[in-house]
Simulated scan of single mutants.
Amino acid sequence: MRCTACGHRYSLLKGEPESYSAEYFLEAHRNWFNNPNTPLFQKVTDGLRELPAGARVLDVGCGKGDFLKYLHGQRPDLELCGLDLSPNQDVPGITFVQSLVEEYEPTEPYDALVTMAVIEHIDDIQGFAQKLSDLVKPNGLVVVMTLDDTSLLYKLGRLFRKFGINIIYNRIYQAHHLNHFNRVSLQTLLERADMELVEYHGHNVPLAAIDIPATGLLQKVLRAGVWGVFNLSELTGNTYLQTLFMRSKR
């Protein structure tokens, strides 16, 4: 379904939503989790450079904690916490909490919050956005990364589907992606949750992180095609992913 006002797309699911079992991490999206987006990690780390020593940073939907481990290597002076439905073992400098974000009540708000590739999985996006704002201090930084429904890859997926070629479409509109944001719809959502835009960053994911549902020669052809799309999207500014740096106005 598509909102005629802002262009936001969302999925109407039949039956139960996809679960996030170990298979989700180890098989279906193995490449994504085995090839962290370190250029994005560095971009976000640079965005946190003004945080003083001892500042508290929360990663909502931290997965295996790859970003927090990267950030700790750059800023060991920060107090880091990762929140996820999946369990993680604490490591030096990082505390992990297993909880739903809507049920998480920290003892005090954070100085900054990061959430990557999470909001598209959320049903109640308005409640989620407000919770992000509530979890940070006044003037705290909130960094949100998600897919861009207006990107070249999405446009090609919808175009090819008209000709009966569904392999891209089925991958980008898969069951666990409930919401498909464009820049306007994402920024509007976050602004309505008492945040204001600091910086917009359009980008792609490392090619090695793409999980292609094919094998052999077809997989090589499709990967070459994705490489071409990514390069063209960088030139045209229609990249696959978007990251918004927001500031709490409360």
Rank of each mutant, 00 (worst) to 15 (best):
R75W: 08
P76W: 06
D77L: 03
L78P: 04
L80R: 03
L80N: 02
C81R: 12
C81F: 12
L83A: 04
L85I: 11
S86Q: 14
P87I: 02
N88P: 01
Q89S: 11
P92I: 04
G93D: 14
I94C: 09
F96K: 04
F96L: 12
S99I: 01
S99D: 15
S99A: 15
L100W: 10
V101Y: 07
E102V: 13
E103H: 13
E103I: 00
Y104D: 09
Y104R: 05
T107L: 10
P109L: 00
Y110A: 12
Y110I: 02
D111I: 01
H121Y: 12
I122D: 11
I122A: 08
D124V: 01
Q126F: 09
F128I: 12
Q130W: 12
K131P: 11
K131G: 07
S133L: 13
D134S: 12
L135H: 09
V136L: 11
K137Q: 13
N139A: 08
G140Q: 07
G140V: 03
L141F: 03
V143W: 01
L147R: 03
D148N: 11
D148T: 01
T150Q: 14
T150E: 15
S151G: 10
S151N: 06
S151M: 03
Y154A: 11
K155Y: 12
L156T: 15
G157C: 04
R161D: 11
R161P: 01
F163R: 05
G164D: 08
G164A: 03
G164Q: 00
N166D: 14
N166V: 10
H176Q: 15
H177W: 09
L178F: 10
L178W: 13
N179V: 02
H180V: 04
V184E: 13
V184L: 12
S185Y: 06
L186W: 08
Q187D: 10
L189V: 08
R192Q: 13
D194V: 07
M195S: 04
E196Q: 15
E196R: 15
V198S: 12
E199P: 03
Y200D: 13
H201S: 07
G202W: 02
H203R: 04
P206R: 06
I210V: 15
P213T: 06
P213W: 12
